[in-house]
């Protein structure tokens, strides 16, 4: 176990060193992404100011949701997004074969060797929004509440990583997977809003087949003491367990697809 941890650490260290070779591009990526998200959130704020609320959610509550959603997403995506989004190319170019001839778990190797520092602005924006909104909301921040927040964020991060893993694994079987990431982000945008504003069928989809509601709406509703339709009393537990459950399903999909891996070329 100690050797495995050392390997993960070494991989993260090398990845960070490689990325820091070009600091300017990293800073520019932070700035551009930060502005991009800030712009999107500002437009939501404008709409909310005009209409007074969104599905019964006021600005500080929605700001907390936006901050939570982007922070949890960044936490999962920094370990998974780049690698699994490019899985199609890795399979096609034989890069994935190179992993299989090493005495390592290919998933762990991909995750730790591909850690992405470009999410700095996501974390900063998410943290600022959560702190500012948290102060305005007058919440009772006791130890249990903080623990619940941390576990929910972990769950949201696991959910993100699990979904990217499952989508990337499709490249083993289909030879293609990039198009699935486009579909993912179409639905992911919905996780910025309180699911209560959507129709019942879409709410159900976002709680089951495409569990994007657990990336923001469900855990934030629980933290803010707001009711969660459909889930009811199960919401607090599911806000924390959604990530691990999805991760187990993703691990099963990854293994099943890997068993059918055929590589490219003869």
């Amino acid at each position: 176990m100690r050797e495995t941890l050392m390997l993960w650490w070494q991989l993260m260290r090398l990845r960070a060193r490689a990325r820091l070779q070009n600091r300017l591009s990293l800073v520019l990526a932070w700035i551009s992404q930060g502005f991009g998200y800030a712009g999107a959130f500002a437009s939501i704020w404008v709409i909310l100011n005009r209409f007074g609320g969104l599905g019964g959610w006021r600005w500080p509550e929605l700001a907390f949701l936006l901050g939570f959603q982007i922070f949890g997403y960044a936490l999962g995506a920094m370990f998974t997004f780049t690698q699994f989004r490019f899985m199609e190319e890795q399979v096609r170019d034989g890069e994935f074969d190179m992993l299989l001839v090493r005495p390592v778990n290919p998933w762990s190797f991909l995750v730790f060797s591909g850690i992405d520092l470009q999410y700095g602005s996501h974390f900063a924006l998410g943290l600022v929004l959560m702190i500012m909104a948290g102060l305005q909301l007058d919440l009772d921040w006791d130890l249990l509440m903080i623990l619940r927040l941390l576990l929910s964020l972990m769950s949201a991060a696991m959910l993100t990583g699990a979904m990217f893993t499952a989508l990337g694994a499709c490249a083993f079987v289909l030879g293609r997977s990039r198009f699935l990431f486009g579909l993912y982000f179409d639905f992911w945008e919905l996780s910025r809003y309180p699911a209560i504003i959507f129709g019942l069928p879409l709410q159900l989809i976002l709680l089951t087949i495409l569990p994007f509601s657990y990336m923001g709406f469900v855990p934030v509703s629980v933290l803010l003491g707001k009711p969660v339709p459909i889930l009811g009393d199960a919401a607090p537990m599911l806000a924390i367990l959604a990530g691990p459950i999805t991760a187990l399903i993703a691990a099963w999909i990854w293994r099943a697809c890997l068993r059918r891996y055929q590589g490219f070329g003869v």
């Binding site: 490689a18 034989g94 190179m98 299989l100 001839v101 090493r102 005495p103």
Partner: peptide
């Protein structure tokens, strides 16, 4: 098996490009 073999693919590299 991987622990006891070495593999070199001529058109791919195991080396880290930027390091």
């Amino acid at each position: 098996n991987a622990r006891e073999i070495g593999v070199v693919f001529g058109q791919r590299s195991q080396l880290w490009w930027d390091l």
